[in-house]
């Protein structure tokens, strides 16, 4: 299952107003490590229906990258109740993505 890509238009609705925790993957098409992280994220999305996993292309949404201090990608930011709860920078294996959620 592909990760849903969102943008500044639906960020508030999908991320900030979500009842469930949301894991946001800040990425870019030219970023190799971001591409390598995708399969792990897809598995996590499948295994954890209690968490919403979405992607944000930083080239098309530089305002969001700036607002959330994203200076290096891939960058995973976990939102709970509209607030940043945790984050991780760089390519990490699936187990580490999962441990970010707990």
């Amino acid at each position: 299952m592909a990760i849903r890509e969102i943008n500044h238009g639906d960020f508030e609705e999908v991320v900030l107003k979500s009842d469930k925790p949301v894991l946001v993957d800040f990425n870019a098409t030219w970023c190799g490590p971001c591409r390598m992280l995708k399969p792990a994220l897809e598995q996590v999305a499948q295994e954890r229906p209690d968490v919403v996993v979405v992607g944000i292309d930083i080239d098309e949404n530089s305002d969001l990258a700036e607002e959330y201090d994203v200076f290096s990608i891939p960058c995973l930011v976990l939102f709970k109740d509209g607030m940043e709860a945790d984050r991780s920078v760089g390519l990490i294996p699936k187990e580490q993505v999962l441990s970010l959620l707990d």
Binding site: P33, A65, F71, S72
Partner: peptide, 17 residues
């Protein structure tokens, strides 16, 4: 501070600066 200003890859992260 890695990913918050400290980077090890200019071609990856240069654009943010």
């Amino acid at each position: 501070l890695t990913g918050r200003g400290v980077s090890y890859c200019a071609t990856c992260d240069g654009n943010f600066f």
